[in-house]
């Protein structure tokens, strides 16, 4: 089977500052990949490269077998970015209008069909914001707004859903709901790539996990991944971590991970293994 994403030896730098080097990653269809890494480890950049939104300096990325840059089927991709767009603070646009944008790749220049409207209603319903549909988006709270963007990605009925820390600023109840929704979607066969700072939460839901800090440290099924030393190597070598703090709240300190959940993972770490 053709993998959903196939990246080989991706290198990327902002000017003279290297961000990614030699990253190779394969995401199979129906995989639920949790991507973790310290702040500034290049997670967002990698995700954008994988989606064809940025061009790597070298290396290749294929989406469903086609080079990402010439992959034209926008209907197969859904994306929830880390920060909402600049325009949503000032522009008069309703939640429903935003969610409808998820159907634009399907519609092209024709009018939205009943099928499109049904997908929009369903996405609003699944994210629990039907009653907010006619509200102006900048009148919503951060969490509600984030659900609107998730609804937009859902409405696109994409085969590959990429989410970049979508639950930042979202209340605990909604986070719970959101993960249940992701599990459902994944069960339906949708490939998911999720960047998340809460390693413990991620471990409960993702089928595979990968750890990034400029280079990819490990990519494995969730259980073996957690048992490997990948997390401690990455978070141990992260810029802000004191080596002797690792056993305590290293994860909490660098990634805002909920330390309680993540503790078992790093308990037995004696000293960080230098990764870089």
């Amino acid at each position: 089977m053709t993998p959903a994403i196939d990246a080989e030896n991706v290198r990327f730098a902002y000017g003279d500052t290297p961000v990614l080097s030699g990253v190779s990653l394969t995401v199979e269809e129906s995989e639920f990949l949790g991507l973790v890494g310290p702040n500034g480890s290049g997670k967002t950049t990698l995700l954008k490269i994988l989606l064809g939104l940025k061009t790597p300096d070298s290396g290749s990325v294929r989406l469903f077998g086609t080079p990402a840059r010439s992959f034209t089927d926008g209907t197969r991709l859904g994306y929830v970015s880390q920060q909402s767009s600049e325009a949503d603070a000032t522009m008069p646009v309703t939640v429903r209008e935003v969610v409808r944008m998820g159907r634009y790749a399907h519609a092209g220049i024709r009018r939205l069909s009943d099928e499109d409207r049904r997908a929009v209603d369903e996405a609003l319903d699944r994210t629990g914001i039907t009653d907010l549909a006619d509200r102006r988006i900048n009148r919503l709270s951060g969490g509600q707004k984030q659900r609107a963007y998730i609804a937009r990605a859902l409405a696109s009925e994409a085969d590959l859903l990429a989410l970049d820390e979508p639950t930042v600023g979202v209340d605990a109840d909604s986070v719970e709901r959101f993960y249940r929704l992701l599990d459902e979607l994944n069960d339906e066969g949708i490939t998911i790539v999720l960047i998340e700072h809460d390693v413990g939460l991620l471990a409960e839901h993702a089928t595979t996990m990968a750890c990034l800090d400029g280079e990819l440290y490990a990519h494995d099924e969730t259980r073996p991944f957690l048992e490997s030393d990948a997390l401690e190597r990455v978070f141990g070598s992260a810029r802000a971590v004191r080596a002797d703090a690792l056993g305590g709240d290293a994860l909490g300190g660098t990634t805002d991970a909920s330390a309680g959940d993540a503790d078992p993972i790093v308990e037995d770490a004696d000293a960080p293994v230098g990764g870089n």
């Binding site: 034209t72 089927d73 209907t75 767009s85 790749a105």
Partner: peptide, 22 residues
């Protein structure tokens, strides 16, 4: 009339529009 959706999309969220391969 023909391109309202695309114009609205790039106005509101360029990145999402690019992802939709507009």
């Amino acid at each position: 009339a023909a391109t309202h959706k695309q114009l609205l999309f790039i106005t509101f969220d360029r990145e999402a529009a690019r992802l939709a391969r507009i």
